[in-house]
Amino acid sequence: MYPAIIRQNTVLLAPNEPNDSGSKPTGIDLYSRFALAGALGCAITHGGLTPVDVVKTRIQLEPEKYSRGMVSAFRTVVKEEGAAALLTGVGPTFTGYFIQGAFKFGGYEFWKKTMIDYFGAETAQQNRTAVYLASSATAEFFASVALCPLEATRIRLVSQAGYASGLVGGFTRILREEGVLRGFYSGFGPILFKQIPYTMTKFVVFEIAAENIYKSIGKSKDQLSPGANDAVNLTSGLISGAAAAIISQPADTLLSKVNKSKGLEGESISSRLVGLSKQLGVKGLFLGLGPRIVMVATLTAGQFFIYGRIKAALGATQGIDLAKPVSK
């Protein structure tokens, strides 16, 4: 059954998209569908943008060599290593973000609903930005735990030519030579520092942008065609992706640096991060921002588009919308 539509003064909590056909998935069945939609959205977009991610990582790690912008960096990589080098790390990228997307999107829907149930419909609607922030941060923490080993493998493959032939080879080599904590989770601090603000910004800005777009149109989701709703998702995704890229850029640079090579014996993660931050300075921490804005804005728009479409295809249309109702 749908969550109830609750009207209290200006409060309206309703399914994201109405669906009147047959019985509806609930509980684990419902959230597994949210998770699958999020997993596919993240895996497809991140995997498809692997070439941009390769170039962005090279600019961060070797700024003296790749100093003339994104297009020049693309040409340099292709000229020196061949076009196939642009797909370096595609295996761990696709796999890592499939897992992360499941935790992120499925978790966001779960924690949002949990907080609405705990605080009550009216309080949640009146404090919806706080609900968005807390739900996305909690979901991303667990998503980052799952992503970190695969992100470490991806960066090692991209930054060290010939390190391994692919996902399995890189993953097993890191595990064998460095162990779980030093090898896979040396970048856990920066990945949290990067991903949690990134995800919080991504969902909050998306929700606010979409709410304002519907308000400016003067129509709610259920009054618009699927194509019009796709356009809202894409536009809101572009806006939220650009904002999230800027917020999380310093941590993304540190993550690339930390995972490029082994740390010194006995050196703590915090010491490495402080040292790298001092070494890079403000300008260095924002290396590769241009390509990253392009990449993140594009993939975020794609994620919300794919997520919405797959949810509809799976019949998972019972997510709760906290936005104020559009005046009709």
Rank of each mutant, 00 (worst) to 15 (best):
D117F: 01
Y118D: 00
F119M: 00
F119C: 00
F119Y: 03
A121W: 01
A121K: 02
T123I: 03
T123C: 00
A124F: 02
Q125T: 04
Q126H: 08
Q126E: 07
R128V: 06
R128A: 04
T129I: 13
A130W: 06
Y132M: 14
Y132G: 10
Y132V: 13
A134N: 14
A134W: 15
S135Y: 13
S136W: 06
S136A: 15
A139H: 13
A139Q: 05
E140H: 14
F142C: 08
F142R: 05
A143D: 07
S144P: 05
L147E: 09
L147G: 02
L150R: 06
E151P: 08
E151T: 09
E151R: 10
I155S: 06
I155N: 08
L157A: 06
L157E: 09
L157R: 11
V158I: 15
V158Y: 12
S159A: 15
Q160A: 12
A161D: 15
A161K: 14
G162D: 08
G162K: 13
Y163C: 09
Y163G: 05
Y163D: 02
S165P: 01
V168L: 15
R173D: 14
R173A: 12
I174P: 10
I174N: 10
L175F: 12
R176E: 01
R176T: 03
E178H: 08
G179W: 04
G179V: 07
V180H: 03
V180N: 06
L181Y: 07
L181P: 02
R182V: 04
G183L: 05
G183I: 06
Y185D: 00
Y185N: 02
